[in-house]
């Protein structure tokens, strides 16, 4: 009995540590294969790239923790980029919070629709994502909206750097710290973990399950919008399809980091590792001259594999 328990604990430890090990192996491998990789600028670029992906994936982590999924994140991020690009000249700095609030609202709406109408989250967010994508197309008339010179100055807080460290990295770090605090120290974080790990027990403990879930989707929407804002500021433009290739890497980052798709097990910290793995694999493949399209194949397969490894099958007696 004890040996089984300890063996299981050992397996759990290995499972939690393996993403970190994978990350180390990747860094060392690519570092020795391509010496240029270890240079400060390359690393800075890598981390800046990762920051945007991480911000989106961090939001997704909250939703996946409660056992849901948010397929609307890329549409929300794109909408946020359009909002920022269009309203920066009008609202000035207020355009940033406006875009993020819009994302938050969409997220809360997704959560509400999912919980209230008892629609599986992947369908609810597919639907809200469709609505949002339509809105973004409508607002921008399907065009890319360029942020002009004046706006670029206001976006400096994203594209600039502080003491030589790119601001993007700092923003990513802030989100990470905030996310960790929320997960580890707030009742909401605790309830999320409990709901994901055992929804009936959480419900029977008096936790307000529906409210918690809606908040989780809200966070996901808000952070997806922040990711869109960062992207827009970085590229000096917003577009209704700006974030279209981000959904898969974002989900992959969460799952590869070791957060179980069934919920309950995971953290924003693991998502940091996952996002770094995704970025490095992407860069590594570019180094190896793997076609950018072929990378999708790798990510798709890796996602399936990571899900298969991290999933808790005892929780889903019938796998639909």
């Amino acid at each position: 009995m004890t040996t089984i328990a300890s063996r299981m604990a050992g397996a759990a430890w290995l499972r939690a540590a393996s993403p970190v090990l994978l990350l180390v192996v990747l860094v060392v491998g690519i570092g020795s294969a391509a010496p240029g990789f270890m240079r400060l600028e390359t690393l800075g670029l890598l981390l800046s790239d990762t920051a945007v992906l991480f911000v989106m994936a961090a939001g997704l982590t909250f939703v996946i923790m409660v056992g849901g999924i948010d397929l609307s994140v890329q549409a929300v991020a794109s909408l946020a980029s359009v909002v920022v690009a269009q309203w920066l000249p009008v609202l000035g700095y207020a355009a940033f919070p406006a875009a993020i609030l819009a994302g938050l609202a969409v997220g809360l709406l997704s959560g509400f629709v999912h919980v209230r109408f008892r629609i599986p989250s992947f369908v609810a967010t597919l639907a809200t994502g469709g609505v949002v994508a339509g809105l973004a197309l409508l607002a921008s008339h399907g065009q890319t909206v360029t942020i002009l010179e004046a706006g670029r100055a206001q976006a400096r807080w994203v594209s600039g750097s502080l003491l030589g460290v790119p601001d993007l990295i700092l923003i990513g770090a802030l989100v990470a710290v905030g996310g960790l605090i929320v997960q580890r120290f707030t009742p909401f974080g605790r309830y999320s973990a409990a709901i994901g790990a055992g929804e009936p027990a959480a419900w029977a403990s008096g936790i307000r399950v529906e409210r918690t879930k809606i908040v989780a989707f809200g966070i996901s929407g808000g952070l997806a919008a922040l990711a869109g804002v960062l992207l827009a500021a970085r590229l000096s433009s917003g577009s209704p399809t700006l974030a279209n290739e981000m959904l898969l890497p974002a989900i992959a980052a969460v799952v590869v980091g070791g957060t179980a798709i069934t919920g309950g097990v995971g953290s924003v910290a693991r998502t940091i590792v996952g996002a770094l793995i995704v970025s490095i694999v992407r860069i590594g493949m570019t180094f190896l001259n793997v076609n950018i399209f072929a990378q999708q194949i790798v990510f798709g397969a890796a996602l399936v594999l990571a899900v298969a490894i991290t999933i808790d099958r005892t929780k889903i007696p019938i796998v639909k």
């Binding site: 409990a194 790990a197 055992g198 009936p200 027990a201 029977a204 808790d312």
Partner: peptide, 9 residues
């Protein structure tokens, strides 16, 4: 195991 405890926590 279902409604009493969150077994993984």
């Amino acid at each position: 195991r279902v409604e009493g405890l969150v077994m993984f926590l």
